[in-house]
């Protein structure tokens, strides 16, 4: 198709006349050769090559930090698909970023349980603290903030994910310190998971290439404290039915030890927050 000079003039003013975009620029030869070798390895895992599309989108994201038109063209070439087919998939899944974003993706769970337990407060505080909104990146290019859906760690609520590593039992203060550390370049350790790497490096693991860093697999221990509660009770290692601090050991770093020496912590006879409906703790009185 040809374009008349007048049409070009209108497009230059930002009004699209539905003309197709120029083809995406290709990767530099060395990058393309490297990615092709990786892509072939991924494709070989599947009986049908198209199954490799999700991992390949993670792979191109590991190259550029987000899924570019170049990346999508690359996927289409490797899998013999059209760019429309690739775009349809890339835009369906939330983990594919479609614009340049930060080294650290900070996701605050604001699904109901985490939101109620403090996730909403944390997300609001981080927006203020960082001066960015949902899906936006700090000026230094370090942190992209977003709210996320349930990340399967409800017994550690409220949860914050950074590059899809778990930061359990967060508070407004711990979350603020976390993003400050990320922006200052300090090494940050998740509560469960490996020492943080960049978003690009994480994307490569998602593409199916094991994390080769020494100690990455064992980091975080066997299980988080909440995961072990039932086991410890069953083994008689914890006294049952005694009201203790909900988080036990291993909670947020800034919290005091899980000791309650104050009488305020004894179960109250009535619920202070709900005087119209007095009731003791459920374990003793509720029901019937």
């Amino acid at each position: 198709m040809t374009t008349t000079p007048s049409e070009q003039g209108v497009q230059a003013q930002g009004v699209s006349l539905g003309m197709p975009q120029l083809p995406a620029p290709d990767y530099p030869d060395d990058v393309r050769a490297r990615l092709e070798a990786d892509a072939r390895e991924v494709i070989a895992r599947y009986p049908d090559s198209r199954s490799a599309l999700l991992p390949l989108l993670h792979l191109v994201q590991s190259e550029e930090g987000h899924v570019t038109r170049t990346g999508m063209q690359f996927c289409a070439d490797m899998l013999d698909l059209t760019t429309a087919e690739v775009t349809a998939v890339a835009t369906f899944y939330t983990m594919y970023r479609r614009k340049p974003s930060g080294d650290y993706q900070v996701g605050v769970c604001t699904n109901t349980l985490c939101a109620v337990m403090g996730g909403d407060a944390i997300f609001e505080a981080l927006q203020d603290h960082l001066g960015v909104g949902n899906g936006e990146t700090t000026d230094d290019g370090k942190v992209t903030l977003e709210h996320i859906e349930c990340n399967a760690a409800c017994d550690f609520a409220p949860v914050v994910m950074v590059n899809w590593e778990f930061f359990d039992n967060q508070t407004v203060d711990t979350a603020k310190r976390l993003v400050d550390d990320l922006r200052a370049g300090a090494q940050v350790e998740p509560t469960r998971g490996a020492p943080l790497c960049t978003f690009k490096e994480t994307a490569r693991v998602l593409a199916g290439f094991p994390d080769e860093r020494p100690g990455a697999v064992e980091a975080g221990g066997s299980a988080g404290p909440a995961s072990l509660i039932g086991l410890r009770l069953a083994k008689g290692e914890m006294t049952p039915a005694r009201v203790v601090h909900p988080r036990g050991s291993g909670g947020p770093q800034d919290q005091p030890p899980a000791e309650h020496l104050s009488s305020h912590d004894a179960p109250q006879q009535t619920s202070a927050s709900d005087p119209a409906h007095p009731a003791g703790p459920v374990s003793e009185e509720e029901g019937e």
């Binding site: 509660i229 009770l233 049952p240 039915a241 005694r242 009201v243 203790v244 909900p246 912590d265 004894a266 179960p267 109250q268 619920s271 202070a272 927050s273 709900d274 409906h277 009731a279 003791g280 703790p281 459920v282 374990s283 003793e284 509720e286 029901g287």
Partner: peptide, 17 residues
């Protein structure tokens, strides 16, 4: 749930389900 709450210390102190 009552059994699970009984053994695990119930709701947080001073509150009801």
């Amino acid at each position: 749930l009552r059994q699970l709450l009984d053994m695990s210390g119930g709701m947080r102190p001073g509150h009801r389900l």
